[in-house]
Amino acid sequence: MNTSTQDNFTANTGARVQEASEIVVSNVSKTYGSGPFSKTVIKDCSFTIESNKLTVMIGPSGCGKSTLIQLIAGFETPDTGTITMNGAPITGPGKDRLVLFQESALFPWMTTYDNIMYGPRARGEGLKEAAKQADFLLAKVGLEAFRDKYPTQLSGGMQRRAELARAMINKPEVMILDEPFRGLDNMSKELMWEYYASLYEEDRNTNFFVTTDIDEAIFLADRLLIMSNLPTSTRSVIEIDIPRPRKIDTLADNQRSNEIKKEVMTLLHEEAMKSFSGGSKAAADFLDAYSKRAE
């Protein structure tokens, strides 16, 4: 098992592919509020988003995953610790790290095409090239027929694909996805997994994907970060060595995938139970019994 209790962000000095774009989070803490009303969301959290890998972060819901994304995206700054990208500290939002949010953030007042073109237009760079790229991406995400439709005229899955295209046109070094497929029905969700995985397998850019769904995490990840309950820190890291390309129907029968799933579930249940028990003995006993059963 490749499980280690702390992510070791110096160990991965191995193979570097052409464009390295590595994000290192080291000893980061974040507290909201002050005095008696303060709440520590992240405490002494360290991990690495390795270059040209799909890193998935999973943790009990309500833990500070979204806060971590705000920090990495540069919308907020950590209280202590550092976040660096390719060695340079992150100071604010930038197009090198694009975020896909939980809820669709497509502008409702722009058509699909205008939404996709927004980044290049706002920065005023390479508009001709971008227009070509936009049409290419529209075809790639299967939305040519919806070029001039407004987001509310698209289904949930189509909105997510439009948003993927809006991010990809900017060729971000790192793509950050915050539970992007939450709220989709199971059918479109699985289609989106395969679709997203195939996009990733095509260019192998650095991706950081946050989720609460174990199946989603195992299906997509190269590396899986398992987060602890509040205050969040890295509980464990698992390398998912299932070969690509991956398909939903074959993955269910994959021995290795099932092993990993069991392991992840045990860890996540422990973390979830911690918040559930809140120190009570009965809950602690239950937790104990549960972990025995899992073995």
Binding site: F75, V99, F101, E103, A105, F107, W109, G119, A122
Partner: peptide, 29 residues
């Protein structure tokens, strides 16, 4: 206006003034 719109815009490289024109005005419409 949902904050995610302004965040998405600034993520995509929009300046504060562009966020005002492209997000705040149409969003408040």
């Amino acid at each position: 206006i949902d904050e995610s719109y302004s965040r998405a815009a600034s993520c995509l490289g929009a300046s504060r003034w562009q966020v005002f024109r492209h997000v705040v005005i149409p969003g408040a419409m």
